[in-house]
């Protein structure tokens, strides 16, 4: 761990936080603005990965491995989500021949 720390610590922690926050916001914005289900999924992944970056940075700065363990779990969960999400989007495409979520207004009153 020690050696990795010195390497990562040559960059100020604020940079990591800012970058992650920026990426996260980008992801949030994407989810809110875009209408294509796959792009939204991609944006969600961007959010998750920005968190990974942040956790890895914190973990290095604190010299504590726990953060990286969570990174692993996040990766796994992200993969599971992608798997499920892609399956759902494939189902959506089969039913509606589109991956645009704005077609979804069937559920009303």
């Amino acid at each position: 761990m020690g050696e990795t720390n010195t390497f990562i610590q040559s960059v100020p922690l604020e940079y990591f936080i800012l970058l992650s926050t920026f990426l996260f916001s980008l992801g949030v914005l994407g989810v809110l603005v875009r209408r294509n289900a796959i792009v939204i999924l991609g944006c969600v992944e961007l959010m998750l990965n920005s968190v990974n970056l942040l956790l890895a940075a914190f973990s290095s700065y604190k010299g504590d491995g726990n953060g990286q363990i969570l990174v692993f779990f996040i990766m796994v969960v992200a993969a599971a989500e992608v798997a499920v999400g892609l399956a759902i989007i494939a189902m959506m495409y089969r039913n509606s021949k589109s991956v645009d979520i704005s077609i979804f207004n069937k559920l009303r009153g």
């Binding site: 692993f72 990766m75 796994v76 993969a79 599971a80 992608v82 798997a83 892609l86 399956a87």
Partner: peptide
């Protein structure tokens, strides 16, 4: 999809 799942298991 299966690749994504199994690959991530391999990562562990």
């Amino acid at each position: 999809i299966l690749f994504v799942l199994f690959d991530i298991e391999i990562v562990f």
